[in-house]
Design a protein around this nucleic acid. Structure first.
Lengths: 137, 137
DNA sequence: CTACCTGCAAACAGTTTGCCGCCTG
DNA sequence: CAGGCGGCAAACTGTTTGCAGGTAG
C-alpha cells in the first residue's frame, strides 16, 4: 500500500461518490504530482481487491465509492438529480429474473433512469419552463 | 426529410439496435460522403420528434432503435451479452417507486446489469476459466 | 435572399497504453 | 539486479462545436 494508494482510498471515503477526475483533484490537494493515470490504475486495483466499487449514474464518468455503499440509485434524466433507495427495493425483481431467466441481477451497479417528483410536478405546472435541461434521456 | 435523414431512419430500422458509429458505417454503404456529425445531429432530431429512441447498454456508446422497440435490457457484465425482457417485468417496481418517492421510472432507458445464466454456470464450474473477460462491472 | 442542412476540422471528455526511470527488496 | 510502481506523453473512443459552402423555398 503506497502513499498514493492510501490517498486514493482516503479520497473515495471522503467524497462518498466521486468520478476519477474528482478523486484526482482531491488527491492532488495533498500530493500535486499524482497523475490521473495512477488514479485509474489504483481504482482498478482497489476494485479487484474489493475495497471500492463503482456505479454508472448515466452518460458521464462512473462514480466510485466504498464497497459498503450499496444503494439503488435513481437519476432524474430531466434535472440530473440522484436519489438513493434501499437495495431491497429490487429484491422481488431480482428473484423473478433469477427464476425466470437465470439472470443474477446486480441492483446497485447501474442507476435507474426516470423523472423525479419535482420534475414531474414541473411538467404538470409549466411544460415550457425555461429552466428545462434534458440531462440525458 | 432529406436523403441523409431517410438513410439514418432506414439504418436504425435495419439494424435494430445500433450505435451511432454502426449506423454511420451502414449509411456510408450507400452514401459514402455522410459524416458522423450528421448521424449525431440526425439522431438527436429523430429522437426529439419521437421516431427513434436510445438505450444505454452499459459503458460504451448508446444504441438507437425504433421508438416501438420497448424492452427491458439485461446485460451480462461478464460476457457482455444483452437479453431482452418484457417491460411489464418492471411494473410493480415502477408502481412502488411512484407511490413511495414520486419517481417515475423509465424502465427501458438503461439496461439492468448482472450475470447471465451461462456465466453463472461458468463461475460454478471453473472460476479461473481463461475465457474470462469482465466486460464492465 | 434567408434559413436550414451538411461536411469538415478541431476541440473536448474520459480512458488506456507504452515507455522509462525510480525505488525497494 | 528484478519487479512493481508511478509519471508523462500519446493514442483512442465517443461526442460536440464552429465555420463555411450548398441548396431549397
Amino acid at each position: 500500500m503506497t502513499p498514493q494508494r492510501q490517498l486514493v482510498v482516503d479520497a473515495v471515503r471522503a467524497l462518498g461518490h466521486a468520478t476519477p477526475e474528482q478523486i484526482c483533484t482531491r488527491v492532488q490537494e495533498t500530493a500535486p504530482a499524482v497523475n490521473i493515470t495512477t488514479i485509474y490504475r489504483t481504482l482498478e486495483l482497489l476494485e479487484r481487491i474489493g475495497l471500492v466499487r463503482h456505479t454508472h449514474l448515466g452518460h458521464g464518468a462512473p462514480t466510485y465509492s466504498e464497497q459498503e455503499h450499496q444503494h439503488v440509485h435513481l437519476v432524474c434524466h430531466h434535472c440530473g438529480s440522484v436519489a438513493e433507495a434501499p437495495t431491497d427495493l429490487m429484491d422481488q425483481l431480482a428473484a423473478r429474473l433469477r427464476d425466470e431467466s437465470g439472470f443474477t441481477l446486480d441492483a446497485t451497479h447501474v442507476a435507474l433512469s426516470g423523472r423525479c417528483a419535482d420534475c414531474a410536478e414541473d411538467a404538470d405546472a409549466d411544460p415550457t419552463d425555461s429552466t428545462e435541461q434534458e440531462t440525458d434521456r
